[in-house]
Design a binder for these strands. Structure first.
Length: 894
RNA sequence: GGGCGAAUAGCUCAGCUGGGAGAGCAUCGGCCUUACAAGCCGAGGGUCACAGGUUCGAGCCCUGUUUCGCCCACCA
C-alpha cells in the first residue's frame, strides 16, 4: 500500500495516488455496518425526505439512474450533515409487462409458455426470479455510494404496498372515480394486453398507402378511399365524407358495396374528415381505429372486430379467417388487384404505433377495460402547481405540465397480464353483481351466491407507483414515518416520466392524503452521448456507469454527473470529462497528503483553528474569507438545485485558490524555523481542509471520508460532522483586496519570465513601481512572499523610476513590473503584443468616454455604475500611457 | 399542425434579477521548482446563429428568420 518516493521515503502515510476501488468497498461496508444511513426521527428537528424513483426490478443501472441517484444522494447527505431528520426510501418497481417478459423468455428456453404453468405457478415463478435476480440494481446503487435507508427497502408488490393498492382502488371505485367501460385501446398482440397511450411509441415507418375503389351499391359509380391497413376493410361499417364536401352530396341516399365481401355500408357525413386528403373519402373501421371509433359513436355504426387477441383474423373476416394480420394484408391486396378494386399503391411514410416494451405493432381494438376518471384529480394537481404548493424546477415545465393536464384522457388502468396487482373486483355468477372490496368476499352481498369470479386483469404498473410517496411510509396505517416525512421534500426524476408518474403521484397524493406528495419536483436532463444522440445499445454509444466506476472511481463519476447537471433538457456526456474529474479527485488527495505530512509531524495537540483570525498572516485571513464565500455559494447552489454550481464552486476553490495559491504561499511558513508561524499555518491548513472535505462530501463521499479519517485527532465518520456554515469573523474584504494585488503582481512577473524564456529554475531581480504610498507599503511588506513565488533574489519597491531599455515590463493595476533582462527580450514579439494592447485600450477608452459624454447615460445610470466607468476610464488612460511609453522604449532597441 | 427547448472559444458546456465575455478539455511555449508530470508556470483563441427593435447600455428583454432537438396530436 505504502509507496515510497526517492525524496522522502517515510513521510507519507497516504499512498501517492488515490486507490479508489479499495477505499470505496471498505467505507461502504463500514457505513452499512454502522447503519449510518438510518433515518432519525427526533422531535423538533426539520425533516428532509426523498422517495427514490423505483427502478424496474428487472433493471440494470444505466447512466440516467446514475445521474438521478447521485443528485438525490447529494441532497440527502447534505441534509443529513445539516442535522435534519433525513430519510431516503429505496425500492424497486414490479414493472408488470417488463418482468413478465423476462420470465416468459426464461420459460421459452425450457420450451414452456406461461399458459403451460397456469397463473398461480407462473406468478410463483416470477417471485422466484425476483428473489434470485431482483437485487441487481440495488447492489449497483450501492456501488454508486447511495446512502438510502436500506432497512426500509420496499417493492411495489410487497404486502404493505399491495394493501395500499387495494385500499385506493376500492376507495376510488366507491367514489365513482373508477369505472369499467367498452373502449378502443391500444392492443399489443404479443404482450396480450392493452397499453396506455403513452406506452405506445410512434415510429415513422416506411409503408404503403393503398387506394381502393369502393363501388356504389347501385352500380352508378364508385368512390376511392385510401388506407395503410387494407386488412381492416373487412371491418368497415361506413364510408365517411365531410358534410360540406359538395363532391359527395349525392351519396346521401346511396350505399356503398364493400369489395370482397359485398356487404353494403352507408355513407356518413362527419367533420373529422379532411377534404384535402386523398379523395376526401374515408373508410370507417370503428373496431380497429381510434378516430373511426369516435366517428362510429357519433353515427351509431356497428363495430365489427375482424381480429383476435393474437392479431389473427377471426370468423368475421370470412374467407380470411385464420390468417395473420400481415399475411391477410398481402392476400387482400392481391385479391383487390385481381378483382380490379385496387386503384394504385404509393410509398408512404407514416407513424406506426409500437409497444414500448416489445416494439410489436400495436393494433387498436375495442375491449372492456377499467378506467380512472382523471379530470377531477387532474384539476387538483393543476391547482397545487398553480398555487405553488408544488414547485417544479426548472419552472419552464409548468406550461407543458398544464397543457398535458388539460388534455388528459381517462386513464386505462387494466392490463391483461398476470404479473401485477390483480384487480379486486368479483362478478357474481348468479346475479351478475360486481363486488369491489378490500378483502376477498365469500358470498355475493346481493343474492348470497358463492359463485364469485375475480377479475383476471391486473393494474397498470403506474397505479402502484402513483401511491409510492405514501405507501412506502406505511399508509394506510397511521405511522410515525408518515407523520415525520409526508409530504416528502423533493422528487428528483427525469422529465420523460413527468406525466407517466409525477402527475399521477400528485393526483393520488392529493386525493388520498389530501396533501401534496412532495413540495418540490426537480426534473433533470436526459443523458445523451457527446453528439447529443440518445444512448442505445443498438447505436453502441452507451456509457455504462459500472465501467466508469471501475475505470475512474465512483467519486470522479459522481462529480462529473454533478458538474453536468445544469437545469436544462439534455446532458451530453463525454467520457473525457470523467477522466478530468478523476484528476481533480487525485489533486484533492495529494493536497491532503501534503497537509498530512505536515500535520502529522506536528505536536499532537494541533487542532483546527478556533481563535479569532484577525491576528493571522495575510494568506490565512484570505483563504478563510474565501472559504466563507465557497460555503455560501455551495449552500445556495444546493438549496436552489443548481447542482453544476455546487461542483464548480468546489472545483474552483479547491484547485485554483487552495492548491494553486494558498498551499504554495504557506510553504514558507511550514518549512520555516519560526514555530509560531508554523503552528499558525498548520492550524489554518487543517481548518480549511476540514471545511473542504465537508463541502465535498455530498458529491464525493468516499475520498472525503478516507482523508478525514487520516487527519490528526480522534475522528469517526465525516458523515456525522455538521455541514459548514459561514463564520462571520472569517469575512475579510481587506485581505482579499491585498491578496488580489499580490496575486496580480506575481502573475505579471511570471508572464515576463516566461515570455523572455527565462529558465524556470533561474533567479531574477525585479522592481515594482507604484505611485500609491499605501500600496507600496503593502508590496514592501509582502515582498518575501512575492519573491518566493516568482523566484526573485531581490525585489525593489519604488514610487517612481526609469525603466531600463532592455527590461521586461508589465502592468497590474497601478503597479509597473520591471525585470531587467539583458538581451532576453524578443523585441519584435513584444512590440506586436503592445500594439495589440494599445488598440484594445484605445477602443475601450473610446467607448467609455463616449458613455461618460452621453447625458442620458449620466442621468439614467445608477451612480455606482457611473463611478465604475469613471474609474475604468482613469485606469485605461494610465495603462494606455504606459503602453505607449513601453512601445517607444522598445523601438529604441530595434 | 400545436407546444417546448437549444444555437456563446476547435470540443463539451456555464453565464441566475440587462452594466467591462467564463470554465474544463484540446492547442502552442517552457519546466521532474522538496503534495501531485494524474503535476506546475505561461500564451493564443469568441461579430455570443442572422435581421430588426426597446434601452444611456443587450449574450441576457421584445419581434421576425434560419438550423437543430424534444414532447403532444397524428390526414386515413
Amino acid at each position: 500500500m505504502k509507496e515510497t518516493t526517492p525524496n522522502s521515503p517515510e513521510k507519507y502515510d497516504l499512498p501517492k495516488g488515490y486507490e479508489f476501488a479499495e477505499v470505496e468497498q471498505r467505507w461502504y461496508t463500514h457505513w452499512l455496518e454502522e447503519k449510518s444511513f438510518a433515518a432519525g426521527m427526533e422531535e423538533g428537528k426539520p425533516s428532509f425526505s426523498i422517495v427514490i424513483p423505483p427502478p424496474n426490478v428487472t433493471g440494470v443501472l444505466h447512466i440516467g439512474h446514475a445521474l438521478n441517484n447521485t443528485l438525490q444522494d447529494l441532497l440527502i447527505r447534505y441534509h443529513r450533515m445539516k442535522g435534519d431528520n433525513t430519510l431516503w426510501v429505496p425500492g424497486t418497481d414490479h414493472a408488470g409487462i417488463a418482468t413478465q417478459n423476462v420470465v416468459e423468455r426464461q420459460l421459452a428456453t425450457e420450451n414452456l409458455t406461461r399458459h403451460d404453468l397456469g397463473r398461480e405457478k407462473f406468478i410463483e415463478r416470477v417471485w422466484a426470479w425476483r428473489e434470485e435476480k431482483g437485487g441487481t440494481i440495488i447492489n449497483q446503487l450501492k456501488r454508486m455510494g447511495a446512502s438510502c435507508d436500506w432497512d426500509r427497502e420496499r417493492f411495489t408488490m410487497d404486502e404493505g404496498l399491495s394493501t395500499a393498492v387495494r385500499e385506493v382502488f376500492v376507495r376510488l371505485f366507491k367514489e365513482g372515480l373508477i369505472y369499467k367501460g367498452d373502449y378502443i385501446v391500444n392492443w399489443c398482440p404479443r404482450c396480450h394486453t392493452a397499453l396506455a397511450d403513452d406506452e405506445v411509441e410512434h415510429d415513422p415507418t416506411d409503408g404503403k398507402l393503398y387506394h381502393i375503389r369502393y363501388p356504389y351499391a347501385d352500380g352508378s359509380g364508385s368512390v376511392v378511399v385510401a388506407t395503410t391497413r387494407p386488412e381492416t376493410m373487412l371491418g368497415d361499417t361506413a364510408v365517411a365524407v365531410h358534410p360540406d364536401d359538395e363532391r359527395y352530396h349525392h351519396l346521401k341516399t346511396i350505399g356503398i358495396s364493400l369489395p370482397l365481401t359485398g356487404r353494403t355500408i352507408p355513407v356518413v357525413f362527419d367533420h373529422h374528415v379532411q377534404r384535402e386528403f386523398g379523395t376526401g373519402a374515408l373508410k370507417v373501421t370503428p373496431a380497429h381505429d381510434r378516430d373511426d371509433y369516435e366517428i362510429g359513436l357519433r353515427h351509431n355504426l356497428p363495430r365489427i372486430k375482424v381480429m383476435d387477441d393474437y392479431g389473427v383474423m377471426n370468423e368475421a373476416a370470412g374467407l380470411y379467417a385464420g390468417l395473420d394480420r400481415f399475411a391477410c394484408r398481402k392476400q387482400i391486396v392481391k385479391d383487390l388487384e385481381e378483382q380490379g378494386f385496387l386503384e394504385r399503391i404509393e410509398d408512404y411514410q407514416h407513424a406506426v404505433g409500437k409497444c414500448y416494451r416489445c416494439t410489436t405493432v400495436v393494433e387498436p381494438t375495442t375491449s372492456k377495460q377499467w378506467f380512472v376518471s382523471v379530470r377531477p384529480l387532474a384539476d387538483k394537481a393543476v391547482a397545487a402547481v398553480q398555487e405553488g404548493r408544488i414547485k417544479i424546477y426548472p419552472n419552464t415545465w409548468d406550461r407543458t405540465f398544464y397543457a398535458w393536464m388539460e388534455n388528459i384522457r381517462d386513464w386505462c388502468i387494466s392490463r391483461q397480464i398476470w404479473w401485477g396487482h390483480r384487480i379486486p373486483a368479483w362478478t357474481c355468477g348468479a346475479c351478475g353483481q360486481v363486488i369491489v372490496e378490500v378483502n376477498d368476499p365469500d358470498v355475493c352481498p346481493s343474492c348470497g351466491s358463492t359463485d364469485l369470479t375475480q377479475e383476471t386483469d391486473v393494474l397498470d404498473t403506474w397505479f402502484s407507483s402513483a401511491l409510492w410517496p405514501f405507501s412506502t411510509l406505511g399508509w394506510p396505517e397511521k405511522t410515525r414515518e408518515l407523520e415525520f416525512f409526508y409530504p416528502t421534500s423533493v422528487l428528483i426524476t427525469s422529465f420523460d416520466i413527468l406525466f407517466f408518474w409525477v402527475a399521477r403521484m400528485m393526483m393520488m397524493g392529493l386525493l388520498i392524503m389530501d396533501e401534496v406528495p412532495f413540495h418540490d419536483v426537480y426534473l433533470h436532463a436526459l443523458v445523451r452521448d457527446k453528439f447529443g444522440k440518445k444512448m442505445s445499445k443498438s447505436t453502441g454509444n452507451v456509457i455504462d456507469p459500472l465501467v466508469m466506476i471501475g475505470q475512474y472511481g465512483t467519486d470522479a463519476f459522481r462529480f462529473t454527473l454533478t458538474a453536468f447537471a445544469a437545469q436544462g433538457r439534455e446532458i451530453r456526456m463525454d467520457e473525457e470529462r470523467v477522466d478530468g474529474y478523476r484528476r481533480f479527485i487525485n489533486k484533492l488527495w495529494n493536497a491532503a497528503r501534503f497537509a498530512q505530512m505536515h500535520l502529522n509531524e506536528a505536536d499532537p495537540g494541533i487542532t483546527a483553528l478556533t481563535a479569532d483570525p484577525k491576528g493571522l498572516g495575510l494568506a490565512h485571513r484570505w483563504i478563510l474569507s474565501r472559504v466563507n464565500t465557497t460555503i455560501r455559494d455551495v449552500r445556495a447552489a444546493l438549496d436552489g438545485y443548481n447542482f453544476n454550481e455546487v461542483a464548480s464552486a468546489n472545483y474552483q476553490f479547491i484547485w485554483h485558490e487552495f492548491c494553486d495559491w494558498y498551499l504554495e504561499w504557506i510553504k514558507a511558513d511550514l518549512f520555516s524555523d519560526n514555530v509560531q508561524a508554523q503552528q499558525q499555518a498548520k492550524a489554518v491548513l487543517l481548518t480549511v481542509l476540514e471545511n473542504i472535505l465537508k463541502l465535498m462530501h455530498p458529491i464525493t463521499p468516499f475520498v472525503t471520508e478516507e482523508i478525514w479519517g487520516q487527519l490528526p485527532g480522534a475522528r469517526s465518520s465525516i458523515m456525522v460532522e455538521s455541514f459548514p456554515e459561514p463564520v462571520a469573523a472569517w469575512d475579510d474584504a481587506e485581505a482579499e483586496t491585498v491578496m488580489n494585488l499580490l496575486m496580480g503582481v506575481i502573475s505579471g512577473l511570471r508572464t515576463i519570465r516566461t515570455e523572455a524564456e527565462v529558465h524556470p529554475g533561474a533567479r531574477i531581480e525585479a522592481t515594482l513601481i507604484c505611485p500609491d504610498a499605501a500600496r507600496r507599503q503593502l508590496l514592501t511588506t509582502y515582498a518575501p512572499g512575492i519573491q518566493a513565488m516568482v523566484r526573485a533574489d531581490s525585489l525593489h519597491v519604488e514610487a517612481a523610476g526609469i525603466v531600463p531599455d532592455d527590461a521586461g515590463h508589465g502592468l497590474f493595476q497601478d503597479v509597473e513590473l520591471v525585470v531587467p533582462l539583458k538581451g532576453l527580450i524578443d523585441v519584435a514579439a513584444e512590440l506586436e503584443k503592445l500594439a495589440k494592447e494599445q488598440a484594445k485600450l484605445e477602443k475601450e477608452l473610446e467607448r467609455i468616454t463616449g458613455k461618460l459624454a452621453n447625458e442620458k447615460f449620466m442621468s439614467n445610470a445608477p451612480e455606482a455604475v457611473v463611478q465604475k466607468e469613471r474609474d475604468k476610464a482613469a485606469e485605461f488612460r494610465d495603462h494606455l500611457a504606459k503602453t505607449i511609453e513601453s512601445t517607444e522604449r522598445l523601438q529604441k532597441l530595434r
